[in-house]
Design a protein around this nucleic acid. Structure first.
Lengths: 122, 122
DNA sequence: TGGCCCGTGTTAGCAAACCTAACATCATTT
DNA sequence: AAATGATGTTAGGTTTGCTAACACGGGCCA
């Protein structure tokens, strides 16, 4: 039971594997961590270890960034601060913003599968 | 399509991860490779990289060894030499051998899931 | 019983992979 | 123009992994 989930969340991958799986640079992956978007584990020697789920998250981040979202946007939507600004209203606002002034040259706009939201301004 | 299979066979794990996933030592893992039981990939720098399937194979090997089989036995059964000795007859012989003189103190005999065969003598 | 094979441990020396910290760059925002 | 955001690059140091070699204890067999 829960074997699949275990496999998905277990920290088993070195950053090099994550790099090839996501086509992100080590710099980017570490930066997204510094921004609180992923939380890999660590070996006894402080090397980062990622789960397959982390890879999914990184791919989603990559997709959203390609769509013109800022890291702050993504962070807000990943762990919404259940604080002041009536949360989902803020999200709707971001959606409106983006739909209107849809500037931000979206280069590829591949086949997303991630969340589903829009930008803002910290 | 074939995404799951891809994930299962892709070389993504360093030996350290395989060690913790199988509770085998690096020495053992490399030895089984030298004996032709697993074939990990290599990074540009010659570091070994394993697939999840490799981990399964190593767990099966571990189980068979615990049951008293020799590496030669396991090797023979994994890639049966389609050569002289009419293959499956040889396997049946090994099965008979084992069933009769079932010596070889089998310590734990956990919950196997692997192949299903018996020993021989190179 | 002495010698050989099997599976594994251990050690040494070296190279690859990874880490942190800092500075550089270049487009946006303000 | 200055600040900010995302990423590149470099340097110096630590961890992980590699190969090769020798050690060892338990079975096996002539």
């Amino acid at each position: 039971m829960a074997a699949e989930e275990d496999l998905r969340t277990r920290h088993i991958l070195p950053i090099s594997t994550v790099m090839s799986l996501t086509a992100l640079t080590a710099r980017q992956i570490r930066y997204y961590e510094a921004q609180g978007l992923v939380q890999p584990g660590r070996t006894a020697g402080q090397h980062r270890v990622y789960s397959l789920r982390d890879v999914d998250v990184l791919l989603a981040i990559k997709s959203q960034l390609a769509d013109g979202f800022s890291i702050a946007d993504i962070r807000n939507l990943m762990h919404p601060r259940h604080q002041a600004e009536n949360s989902d209203e803020a999200v709707r606002q971001m959606l409106r913003d983006e739909l209107l002034q849809q500037s931000r040259f979206a280069p590829d706009a591949e086949m997303r599968q991630g969340f589903g939201f829009r930008r803002s301004g910290e």
